[in-house]
């Protein structure tokens, strides 16, 4: 009960209702995010239909190792996030497990960003930035890489926000400022984290797999 009163916020009288509203609100926001990434993927689809060969050639020029390792890293981070969420929801007091899982999630997220940074460096060295001196001859390939930089950049911004949110939760739990058990902020952060993950599941085949099937 004391846990709940520490978490109760204006204008709610009932903690269960507040939790439900928080979850509902984040789902509505995630719906909005779907349209955000949806518009980018639509742009990708239109360009790919207009330039299929260039997109295949550009897809072959990506480094699939970085992409695949990052996919594994991010999916694992979703596992640890889900474990943190489940552990906090369980009636048993699993504070240390929650803390460990949150820390692992944030570190895996950071690892993704670092690996992505190495990949960006390689892309720049290979002249895969649209503009003068671009490495590939097809005009559509510049479109592919324009979208590549934009969509992975937007994804990385989302992921960085997620890392900050998870890091903040970890810190507050570690300092015992907030109770871990049944904390609605944890559920909300987890839902956001999974969205960022799901977006990557769409991005991986669209970026790294074109032109590699034959």
């Amino acid at each position: 009960m004391s846990d709940e009163s520490a978490l109760l916020r204006e204008p709610w009288f009932d903690f269960g209702r507040q939790r439900e509203a928080g979850k509902f609100g984040i789902w509505v926001f995630l719906g909005s995010e779907m349209l955000f990434f949806g518009a980018l993927l639509l742009t990708y689809t239109v360009c790919r239909i207009e330039h299929p060969d260039a997109f295949a050639a550009a897809g072959r020029a990506t480094n699939i190792w970085y992409g695949t390792i990052n996919t594994a890293v991010l999916l694992t981070s979703s596992l640890t996030m889900a474990m943190a969420s489940q552990a906090a929801a369980s009636p048993a007091r699993l504070r240390r497990l929650v803390l460990a899982c949150l820390l692992a999630t944030a570190l895996l997220g950071l690892a993704f960003v670092v690996i992505k940074g190495f990949e960006y460096k390689e892309d720049i060295d290979k002249h895969l930035v649209p503009g003068a001196g671009f490495a590939l001859p097809q005009p559509g390939a510049q479109l592919f890489y324009g979208l590549y930089w934009l969509v992975t950049g937007v994804h990385a911004v989302h992921l960085s926000i997620g890392i900050v949110l998870v890091g903040r939760l970890f810190w507050e739990f570690y300092r015992r400022e907030l109770p871990t058990q049944a904390n609605p902020e944890l559920e909300i952060t987890a839902l956001y984290w999974h969205l960022v993950d799901i977006v990557w599941i769409f991005l991986y085949p669209l970026i790294y797999l074109p032109g590699r099937s034959s």
Binding site: S32, E33, L35, F36, G38, A39, L40, T43, V46, C47, E50, H51, A54, P130, G131, P139, G140, Q142, L143, G146, L147, W149, L150, V154
Partner: peptide, 28 residues
Amino acid sequence: PVLAISLLLVIAERVLGLPIFDPARGGD
């Protein structure tokens, strides 16, 4: 969010030189 993306693409094209809407470079 779709408005946000359409303006983000314009900004990216102006600032970073991406070719999304440039017909000469295959854009639409």
